[in-house]
Simulated assay, not measured.
Amino acid sequence: MRPLLLAAGLVAVVAAPSLADPALTVAPSVMRRAANPYSPIVQTVPVNAEVDIQSCGGAWCYGSWRGLYGFFPAFAVAQGALPPTVGFAPPPSSFVVTAPVVVAPPPPVVRWGGPYVGVGWGWSRW
C-alpha cells in the first residue's frame, strides 16, 4: 500500500506543472516570492513572455517562467489561447509608392557682367 501511495504522489508532483494554463505577459513585470509588492523579487519578466499560470486570486497569479516559480501581478498576465507561433504574416493588401523628395541647392544669383551700354560713360560732366 505504501509503494502505491508513493507512486501516486510522484505522479501528482510530476503532472502538476503540466496542468498550468499558458498565458502571456502584457506588461513588463517582476515575479515575486510572495503575493505582495514588498516581497523579494525572483526575476524580471519581459513583455510577451509565455508563462505558466497555476492559479489566480485577487491581484496576484501564481505560476512559473523559465523554471522559477512565483507570483505575477494579475494586470500583467493575459490568460487564454496563445496566438499561433508558426506561420507567416499575410502580405499587405496594397502598396503606396510615392515620388522621392529631391532637395536641390537654390538657383544662382545672376549679376550683370557685360559691357556698359548707355549715355554718359567714362569721364564727362554728366
Rank of each mutant, 00 (worst) to 15 (best):
Arg33Lys: 11
Asn36Cys: 01
Pro37Met: 10
Ser39Asn: 07
Ser39Val: 02
Pro40Leu: 02
Pro40Ser: 03
Pro40Tyr: 06
Ile41Arg: 08
Ile41Asp: 05
Ile41Lys: 08
Val42Asp: 04
Val42Ser: 04
Val42Asn: 02
Val42Thr: 05
Thr44Ser: 13
Thr44Cys: 02
Thr44Ala: 10
Val45Glu: 01
Val45Ser: 00
Val45Met: 02
Pro46Thr: 06
Pro46His: 08
Val47Gln: 07
Ala49Trp: 05
Ala49Asn: 03
Glu50Arg: 15
Glu50Pro: 04
Val51Glu: 02
Val51Lys: 03
Val51Tyr: 03
Ile53Pro: 00
Ile53Lys: 01
Ile53Met: 03
Gln54Ile: 03
Gln54Phe: 09
Cys56Glu: 02
Cys56Pro: 01
Gly57Ala: 09
Gly57Val: 00
Gly57Glu: 05
Gly57Tyr: 05
Gly58Phe: 07
Gly58Val: 07
Gly58His: 08
Ala59Pro: 00
Ala59Val: 03
Ala59Lys: 07
Ala59Arg: 09
Ala59Leu: 10
Trp60Tyr: 14
Trp60Arg: 06
Trp60Asp: 06
Cys61Ile: 03
Tyr62Leu: 06
Gly63Lys: 01
Gly63Arg: 00
Ser64Trp: 08
Ser64Arg: 14
Ser64Met: 12
Ser64Asp: 13
Ser64Ile: 10
Arg66Thr: 10
Gly67Met: 13
Leu68Cys: 01
Leu68Ser: 13
Leu68Met: 09
Tyr69His: 04
Tyr69Trp: 04
Gly70Tyr: 08
Gly70Asp: 11
Phe71Thr: 00
Phe71Val: 00
Phe71Ala: 02
Phe72Val: 05
Pro73Val: 10
Ala74Cys: 02
Phe75Val: 15
Phe75Leu: 14
Ala76Phe: 01
Ala76Leu: 04
Ala76Ile: 05
Val77Pro: 01
Val77Ile: 15
Ala78Val: 04
Ala78Arg: 15
Ala78Pro: 01
Gln79Glu: 14
Gly80Trp: 10
Gly80Leu: 09
Leu82Lys: 12
Leu82Asp: 09
Pro83Ala: 14
Pro84Gly: 08
Thr85Leu: 12
Thr85Ser: 14
Val86Gly: 01
Val86Asn: 10
Val86Ser: 13
Val86Cys: 04
Val86Glu: 15
Phe88Leu: 12
Phe88His: 10
Phe88Gln: 11
Phe88Ser: 10
Ala89Phe: 13
Pro90Cys: 05
Pro90Leu: 08
Ser93Ile: 10
Ser94Met: 13
Ser94Lys: 15
Ser94His: 15
Phe95Trp: 10
Val96Lys: 08
Val96Gly: 04
Val97Trp: 09
Thr98Glu: 05
Thr98Arg: 05
Thr98Cys: 00
Ala99Cys: 04
Ala99Ile: 03
Pro100His: 03
Val101Ala: 13
Val101Met: 11
Val102Ala: 11
Val102His: 10
Val103Pro: 02
Val103Lys: 13
Val103Phe: 02
Ala104Trp: 00
Pro105Asn: 14
Pro106Val: 12
Pro106Met: 09
Pro107Cys: 05
Pro108Glu: 09
Val109Ile: 15
Val109Phe: 07
Val109Thr: 15
Val109Cys: 06
Val110Cys: 04
Val110Asn: 06
Val110Tyr: 04
Arg111Val: 15
Arg111Tyr: 12
